[in-house]
Write a protein that binds this DNA or RNA. Structure first.
Length: 559
RNA sequence: GCGCCUGUAGCUCAGUUGGAUAGAGCAACUGCCUUCUAAGCAGUGGGUCAGGGGUUCGAAUCCCUUCAGGCGCACCA
């Protein structure tokens, strides 16, 4: 719908000899009495042309040739150009929309098949997922759906931090528990993990491997076994939780793998990367440690990649990881990180640049932390004592769809209070049900219509021929316009990488459909009218379904 | 101390990249089920857009500053 306006405006500007801006602003006026669409372009051009906005607006209007779709084009307020579409034009557009049918919303050309690697969650496999991970998961999954639908080729990846101190600590914690179970005492590591899951894993080992490791020290080979076994168990749990949350990944990249030499390779990915940086002169040795000269690429400090003790830092493998991503040939890398990692962005971008890639290739979306409340009071969580509420707990208490919807009605970088009582108490009144209910309701209507002998128009066949002109009620006009606006909202969401725009749109759409349903009977006495209303309902259904699918929220046939 | 994020209705949050008279849900109150689903609808009340300056035709949005909250500033991950 907005495209029509953009097009005629571009033509008019061209005819006036004015350079056409890259992106002509088109918006929906606040007050529907003002028109269907509006542009402030005359005001934007005012300074450049040194003419009053209203005069420019008049001139633009005078230069619009194709005005067949419009009832009215007029100047209003300080210089807006307002467009009111002809009903015929709306019906034509809606017919076109229906003709394309489910899943054929034409938008594949936005992404043009460009390849995106989307990395998200990537929680350490040292404990269960918490709510903050859930937020990242919901956003990542929705973003992947959004971008895929827009014609990007998206790979969802989970980076597993299975190397280094943290997993070692997990292994040792399990080891200590295991010894305790077998009646041997082994000092529990100071910063060890104390959650119940540690004991669960220890029990499983005691069961599967009996007392084979009883009384031993935490040294190889048993330390390797405990570390890898525990890590594997945690990962399985994480994977299961994510699946229950409706979030899946295409690839799981192991950090440890980046340190391993493949049979036919003389060096590991990490070694290769560091050698590359060293040869380029981007490293230095100071106080026994090897540093990456991040300051040469805009970071505020140089960063250690090999400690004086010889161990690699996390950053070393992270550079190798990002090098690998970019070498594979992705056009764009998107990382979704917790906001507590924001200080990390400049150094990763610096590394990318040192490796010869533009830092713009990487886009980091920061997800703000989630404060968990119950009845307005913060839920105390102590990781040390192993007391915390996990994503799984929240899913069981509140529900996966509601939890996801909560996350997706906020932009990523807003701080979020997640009150369990509110989420649960509002459950019946929750916006997610409002949207789902609209969808279920339409399905119910269509079922009812089928029973009454009205044949639901099928895409590519009957839909084209349905006469939509009986749709003259204001509620119907409003609904049609909202539906036709979906592609523009979708595109804006893609452009901004903000799935929450879809969430709000769906609430608005449902907020138009419900009153319409309440005021007018879809399946009525009049045959022509009923067919037209069914077609309109079906169009709303298509959009609701598509939007819910993007969000990763269920679209129930009935409720 | 420095950096990043946030501050919008009682609560939780949007605000179409600077546009018209700032919106939604929840909570509160009043009505609506014999008719396609009442997880719905109709209506009422609710604002110093944290404060102050600036930029311009125009600011919740951009800049400066103050205040408040969160998060970072390792040879941790």
């Amino acid at each position: 719908m907005t495209e029509i306006v953009r097009k005629i405006l571009a033509e008019a500007l061209g005819a006036m000899g004015i350079p056409v801006p890259e992106r002509i602003e088109v918006e929906v006026p606040r007050d529907e009495a003002l028109g269907d669409l509006s542009t402030p372009i005359a005001m934007s051009l005012s300074k450049q042309l040194r003419k009053p906005p209203k005069n420019i607006a008049q001139e633009i209007i005078a230069n619009i040739r194709e005005r067949g779709d419009f009832e009215k084009i007029e100047v209003a307020g300080p210089g807006f150009i307002n467009f009111t579409l002809k009903k015929d034009s709306l019906y034509r557009s809606l017919s076109g929309f229906l003709r394309e049918g489910d899943g054929l919303l034409s938008r594949k050309d936005i992404g043009k098949g460009r390849k995106i690697l989307l990395e998200f969650v990537s929680a350490n496999p040292t404990g269960p997922l918490h709510l903050g991970h859930g937020r990242g998961a919901a956003l990542g999954a929705a973003l992947a759906n959004l971008l895929s639908a827009a014609g990007f080729s998206v790979i969802k990846e989970y980076y597993i931090n299975d190397a280094g101190r943290q997993v070692g600590l997990l292994g040792e914690s399990v080891f200590a528990k295991y010894q305790e179970l077998l009646g041997k005492s082994y000092p529990f590591p100071e910063d060890g993990y104390r959650g119940a899951y540690v004991e669960d894993i220890a029990k499983k080992i005691a069961l599967d491997e009996t007392d084979r490791y009883k009384g031993l020290e935490f040294t190889p080979p048993q330390s390797d076994f405990f570390r890898e076994y525990s890590c594997g168990q945690m990962l399985a749990l994480i994977k299961a939780d994510l699946e229950a949350f409706g979030v899946t990944f295409d690839t799981w990249q192991s950090e440890k793998e980046l340190y391993e030499r493949k049979p036919d390779e003389p060096e590991s990915e990490v070694e290769k990367t560091i050698r590359y940086l060293r040869e380029k002169g981007y490293t230095k040795t100071e106080e026994g440690a090897t540093w990456f000269k991040a300051t040469e690429f805009g970071d505020e400090k140089d960063r250690v990649i090999i400690r004086s003790g010889g161990a690699y830092t996390y950053f070393a493998s992270d550079i190798a990881y990002h090098k690998k991503k970019v070498d594979v040939g992705y056009d764009e890398l998107i990382n979704i990180w917790g906001a507590d990692h924001h200080g990390y962005i400049p150094r990763v971008k610096a590394a990318l640049e040192a490796l010869g890639y533009e830092k713009e290739r990487l886009k980091v979306l920061l997800v703000q932390l989630v404060s968990l409340l119950r009845g307005g009071k913060p839920v105390q969580m102590s990781k040390r004592a192993g007391e915390f509420i996990t994503l799984k707990d929240v899913m069981e208490e509140v529900g996966a769809d509601t939890t996801k919807f909560m996350f997706l009605t906020r932009k990523a970088d807003s701080h979020l209070d997640f009150d369990l009582e509110v989420a649960k108490a509002a459950s019946a009144e929750n916006p997610v049900y409002y949207v789902q209910y609209a969808y279920a309701r339409i399905n119910s209507i269509l079922r009812h219509a089928a029973e009454k002998g009205f044949i639901e128009p099928q895409a590519g066949t009957g839909a084209v021929d349905v006469d939509l002109s009986p749709l003259s009620e204001p509620e119907e006009q409003r609904l049609i316009k909202k539906i036709l606006l979906y592609p523009a909202v979708f595109e804006a969401a893609v452009y901004a990488r903000e799935p929450h725009r879809i969430t709000f749109y769906l609430q608005e759409l449902a907020g138009i459909f419900h009153p319409y349903y309440n005021k007018h009977r879809i399946v009525a006495e009049d045959n022509r009218l009923t067919l037209a209303r069914l077609a309109l309902s079906r169009a709303a259904r298509i959009v609701l379904r598509d939007g819910l699918h993007v969000l990763g929220v269920a679209a129930p046939e009935r409720m």
